[in-house]
Design a protein around this nucleic acid. Structure first.
Lengths: 337, 337
DNA sequence: CTGAAAGCGCTTACAG
DNA sequence: CTGAAAGCGCTTACAG
């Protein structure tokens, strides 16, 4: 690999000048800069990451910590992060949190402490007290998505408001017997998102003066399969609901399929709404509250870059992530009885 | 951050000895090693990645190049890679190939040349002549998945054989009017996988003495939505097929849904088989040829580690990836006419 | 605006 | 088995 002194020799300057010309730090005359850039291009010179990092203390690399790589939400957020960081010339190193506690400990104690990254983006990870400490002690910016984690700068959608919006949409259509598919308690790891969504649901009902029916709540595991089974149980009852609000699009799709299997027409006999903005939503004509996961990743990337290189108004960016009701074909006025 | 000399001081040895004790390279007495390890643990010392890389030339970091982060196949393979590499203490830095040609050029010309990684895993990427050159010139091991790329060491499933197996399964059930949902030509970027699958399909038919019916082939885009539309067209004809072989599970699921919408029973009226081993397969009871994508990632990770640290029998590992017919509920004997 | 030189924090021949 | 010292390839005060 070509080194900096070859470039310096070819351009007729010192390595210090090459460094300044290529990094944009410090003063270099336009003519010199042009000569250095030409020499670097001709030789195909690229700064060595480790040498540059060691000397400067900057790695141009962001760590991204994810609980699952192969689940739609996380890989979509990750795609957003990657796209935004690449645009700024940053690399990303990936840290998949393992279910294995020993591996998880090692992640925080070893992997993250190698000084390989300038900052960290943590996607929907509930951190233990101790883990938050470890992150804080790293002394680098950390941005959480899906927080809020009191210890971290976090970007988050207001899950209570999201669930409320979805529920109000159903109420506005005249539904009264509205069921909710939420998460079983053991799934409430990611910042209690399921709990917040349930709260929003209950709030909206209460405001409309609709009493809660305990038989109209079912837990599931955020998958199509789980949503299918939960909907089956909900539709089993004699007084089955006219609408289902699922805490994720995948569960909502499962509910749509379960309804069809029962011979129920969606939306004529049963309305279904989800949350997410899942790519399958348009195919199933699913009404949903989109939370723009790819944009969440991009926002997190920008936030970390601002923390790293930005001006002082970093705090000016709002931590609230946008969401939006997307009306498609799975919700309609409640059937008259 | 604690440095190596603090550890050396505390253990009462030189930094050279600390380095040797912690890295496992070179001779250190058991007693000394224990003392060093204790000191390092007490201080929470972790080797600085950039200093170690610069001095040793080893980064303990693997680059993974993927065309899409947010598609099931790629994120699943990636999960396999990440799990296997983490077990060996390796980091992974992610390179998402952009559709933007300028960004793609920059990836090969700049990002990959920063000497940040010891090796590269390229997941199902069709490389241009020039790009293959750039990779080769990096002078580090490169493993391709989904090859074969003549220039790269590649792991690949035999797509012709996979498609043949799927088709033979249908023929064995007595089907003669078998349709194929493949890929439109512009989707044939990933190593001509769709073309190979189509070849396997045609081969199996030919061997069974079944003439090809041009009206029983439909292109799609590898999504559920695309498979749904393609199946609709196939089922429109007066002499519609009794079985559909889709070149991906997602398209097969689309076909199942299209059949249901037509009022066709699967598998009684129509058999459907896919390829992949998609997570949704079990929910839809989809018969498929599983290609174990997560295991593909793990295999690639092991291959790159072998190339990096392994003995000479690296070439001994077979580049053939396994596949297997998984019979579930969407295929059955052909209806008697 | 430019260069000489120290230094970033490790690793590894070399010598003992 | 262990240590002193050079060196990995850059960046950046410092001086001019």
């Amino acid at each position: 690999m070509v080194g900096i002194d070859e470039v310096a020799r070819r351009a007729g300057v010192s390595t210090a000048t090459v460094s300044r010309a290529l990094s944009g730090r410090g003063q270099v005359s336009a003519a010199t800069r042009a000569r250095v850039e030409d020499a670097a291009a001709a030789l195909g010179y690229v700064v060595s990451a480790s040498a540059s990092s060691l000397a400067s203390g900057r790695t141009r690399n962001i760590g991204v910590v994810v609980p699952y790589l192969d689940r739609w939400f996380f890989s979509t957020v990750l795609a957003g992060v990657a796209a935004a960081l690449a645009r700024h010339g940053y690399d990303i190193t990936l840290y998949a949190v393992s279910e294995d506690p020993a591996a998880r400990t090692q992640l925080f104690r070893t992997f993250l402490r190698r000084q390989r990254v300038d900052g960290i983006i943590a996607i929907s990870i509930e951190l233990g007290e101790h883990e938050s400490d470890e992150l804080a002690r790293l002394g680098i910016p950390v941005i959480g998505i899906g927080g809020p984690n009191a210890r971290l700068t976090s970007l988050a959608v207001d899950d209570v408001a999201v669930a409320r919006l979805a529920t109000e949409h159903l109420i506005g259509l005249g539904h009264r017997a509205i069921a909710h598919i939420g998460a079983s308690p053991e799934f409430d790891l990611d910042f209690h998102i399921p709990t917040h969504r349930r709260q929003g649901f209950e709030l909206a009902l209460a405001e409309a003066g609709i009493p809660m029916r305990p038989d109209l709540w079912e837990p599931a595991d955020f998958t199509i399969e789980g949503g299918f089974a939960a909907a089956q149980r909900l539709l089993d009852g004699s007084e089955h609901p006219t609408a289902i609000f699922a805490a994720s699009d995948e569960m909502a799709i499962g509910a749509v399929l379960a309804a069809r299997e029962r011979g129920l027409r969606v939306p004529e006999d049963l309305s279904v709404i989800g949350i997410d903005g899942h790519e399958l939503g348009s195919f199933f004509r699913l009404t949903t509250v989109d939370q723009f996961p790819k944009a969440q990743g991009e926002r997190a990337a920008e936030a970390i870059l601002t923390a790293l290189e930005g001006s002082e108004d970093a705090a000016a960016t709002t931590p609230d992530l946008p969401f939006e009701l997307v009306q498609r074909g799975t919700t309609a006025p409640a059937p008259s009885r």
